[in-house]
Amino acid sequence: MARITPTPGQKILYFLLVSLGIGILYIDINTNSFQEIKHGYKSLKISSFYILKNISIEPVRRVLNLTKSKKTLLEENTNLKKALDASYLNNYLISRENSFYKDDNILKYPLLDDDFKANYSLAKLKDLDPNIFKCCDKHRMYIELFSNSKEQSNLESVVFNKSGIIGQITNDGNYLEVILLTDVSHSIPIKSISDTFFCNAKGSGRANIIICSYNPLIWDEEILLTKTFYTSGLGGIFPRNIKIGNVINILDISPNLREIEIALSANPLDDEIFGVFKN
């Protein structure tokens, strides 16, 4: 049977819907008005996954654990893993390559009974879309604190893993939204080790790459491949002198514009446990 091609009335409906779609798209791109719906959906997805897991897999696992009398051992194993992850982060903080804290003695362990004494909190990964991370301009990640105290705001807190800084918190709803250094709308002030070259490195939208644009006529320090860059601390958000990464590519765009691509030393896909500095 032949199908009827769209009538003039249907064509008008198509036109209106396409116009509406473009309108919604324009509003979403420019105002982010639908973020709450998206966050709600993500929360729902994550919560449903965990509820389903708790209903379906966990009881079976619990029974198996009971039958094998390994529950205590598993708990101990979980605690040890958490402690090990925390020690990796602590090692990063006190390593010689950076100076989060000049005095190691002030470093407080995040798994202490009194969470208020700790300098940073441990958080676990809740959602990071690797497809978006590898393809698109917007690089975001969602994490959840182990000890979720609502008394202190985590907005703008620095997030790091055992390899280095990966971003900062932009939204502290149910889950903390982290804008990664590679997001195109993110900038981080960096400098060379000699303290004679400073610039704001913007996210490239590509995995693990940030881009620093500068005028070579103004900044005459010679930048070579593999040169290491550090945080300058000028923005007041990121601590000073933290290793960010190494130069992997230098592009001469014009006589007064040069771009250097820096490969970050920390990759958010490497870990599931992160540290969040307290403000």
Binding site: Q10, K11, D28
Partner: peptide
């Protein structure tokens, strides 16, 4: 997780095209 309206517009357009050229 893309911007709202992107797929909505493109789905509408492809539906219109396929319906128009169905015969």
């Amino acid at each position: 997780g893309s911007y709202f309206g992107l797929n909505a517009t493109l789905f509408c357009l492809i539906t219109y095209l396929i319906n128009s050229y169905s015969n």
